[in-house]
Design a protein around this nucleic acid. Structure first.
Length: 228
DNA sequence: GCGACAG
DNA sequence: ATCTTGTCGC
């Protein structure tokens, strides 16, 4: 059985109120155990959207070989899709299936990278932040596009980044993870700072746009991946 | 009222 | 996210 279902079947109005409340519980400072394993999380859909497929990939962290990291475990969890995609309420659609995938894991990571926003969200509770609270693990959000916040143009060089702002508050960073490619949006979720988030993301960056954890989870969650 | 809008 | 082939470029 997964987490108390009542939290996941809320009307948009209530879901939004819950997000604001939960956001106050986020820890915005570093509280990480020594990192030996990093997980990547992403969600995909099948059957025209009727089935939600959560994928979690656990990689062994080894500074000697990074950004090449070995896969220690891969898990896929399928569940009936419970609600449609509503901008700002993504976590209510994706987290239930993700929690099921984590329950199947035999190796728990000390750090989790999620495909989506951390606190770079209207109410500061993107999917990465929400998942971090549920798992009580440090999480980082790595999104392929912007949901919320303003920013200046980002440099062209790989590694260049510029702050993502919500007024005067810094809620994330726009990172040029690969030259000549659209930048990614990095924002801390839970138990980690933006600075530390950027350090980890860059350390897991190969020559690709996405860091290894989410790149592999992306592939595993995608319908194009013919595995089963 | 008019846009914007993670996956 | 997903529906979908080939094709341009490093």
């Amino acid at each position: 059985m997964s987490a108390s279902l009542h939290e996941w079947n809320l009307a948009p109005r209530e879901a939004m109120a819950l997000q604001s409340q939960l956001a106050t519980q986020l820890e915005m400072s570093d509280r990480l155990a020594p990192v030996t394993h990093i997980a990547g999380v992403d969600i995909g859909f099948e059957d025209g959207g009727e089935t939600t497929r959560a994928a979690v990939v656990v990689l062994k962290w080894d500074p000697a070989t990074a950004p090449e990291l070995s896969v220690v475990e891969q898990v896929v969890n399928r569940e009936p899709t419970r609600m449609p995609y509503i901008p700002g309420l993504l976590s209510f659609r994706e987290i239930p299936a993700a929690l099921g995938a984590f329950e199947k894991l035999s190796v728990l990571p000390e750090l989790v990278m999620v495909d989506g926003q951390g606190i770079a969200h209207p109410r500061r509770l993107g999917v990465a932040a929400h998942l971090g609270l549920w798992l009580d693990l440090p999480t980082i959000g790595i999104a392929k596009s912007r949901l919320y916040g303003k920013h200046a143009e980002v440099g062209e060089q790989r590694g260049d980044w510029t702050p993502l702002y919500a007024g005067k508050e810094t809620i994330g960073a726009v990172l040029r993870s690969r030259a000549k490619v659209k930048p990614v949006f990095v924002s801390p979720g839970h138990r980690i700072t933006l600075e530390t988030s950027l350090t980890w993301v860059m350390q897991c960056l190969g020559r690709t746009k996405l860091p290894e954890p989410t790149r592999l989870a992306d592939r595993l969650a995608s319908r194009r991946d013919q595995r089963k």
